[in-house]
């Protein structure tokens, strides 16, 4: 554990809680891509199956349970409780275009051709692109609520902090996981355009809206 890893995890947690609270307080999931949330629930489910096979630490177990629980709670709020506010027409990204290639890649490029390892690899690859339906939705509607942009900022910041964590671990522990690193770089790059808009617009008190 190092400071980048810890702040990365807390940033991830902040993002998840911000989204849940936004939906709960406003009683609405307008502007939120249910498809991205389904992908994140799938990511956590396939990655954290090791909860059943190996114990790493209390911190690790508790955080995994919180992430999984919140992911399913979010999906429940969007597709069940506040279904009437869900903007399905603008959430038109085709999930199979992500899940199928990612599944194929996980079978081809992995550390070990075993069931759990392939699911872990699948989750790493899928997480790197899981935000695309949300970004696609924002590009379609041309705007995002400010609270939604805070969610995206913390979600992007988390993987960027993990990049520093991996640099740290490489130098001080000699540890590196090429699959996680490459996917993490891809994931962070996908947020760069958004980070720019966040800093230049949202942090200056303006709403995030894209030029028509």
């Amino acid at each position: 554990m190092n400071i980048f890893r810890l702040t990365g995890d807390l940033s991830h947690l902040a993002a998840i809680i911000i989204l849940l609270l936004k939906i709960w307080k406003t009683r609405s999931c307008a502007g939120i891509s249910g498809k991205s949330q389904i992908l994140f629930a799938l990511v956590f489910t396939t990655r954290y199956l090791d909860l059943l096979t190996s114990f790493i630490s209390f911190y690790n177990t508790i955080m995994k349970l919180i992430y999984i629980g919140c992911a399913y709670a979010t999906v429940y709020l969007i597709y069940m409780k506040f279904k009437a506010t869900y903007d399905g027409n603008h959430d038109s990204f085709r999930l199979e275009f992500l899940v199928v290639p990612v599944g194929g890649l996980a079978c081809l490029v992995n550390h070990d051709f075993s069931f759990l390892e392939i699911l872990w690899t699948f989750s790493i690859y899928l997480e790197s692109v899981a935000i695309l339906p949300q970004l696609f939705m924002i590009s379609k509607t041309g705007e995002a609520e400010t609270i939604t942009t805070h969610y995206l900022f913390f979600l992007g910041l988390y993987r960027a902090l993990y990049l520093f964590n991996w640099i740290w671990r490489f130098y001080f522990e000699g540890f590196f996981d090429m699959i996680a690193i490459v996917a993490g770089v891809v994931q962070t790059i996908l947020y760069c355009d958004f980070f720019y808009l966040y800093v230049t617009k949202v942090l200056k008190g303006k709403k995030l809206s894209l030029p028509a």
Binding site: S57, H111, E117, W120
Partner: peptide, 10 residues
Amino acid sequence: KADETSHDEL
């Protein structure tokens, strides 16, 4: 070959 328990990150 990776040790499966080495996935200690979240």
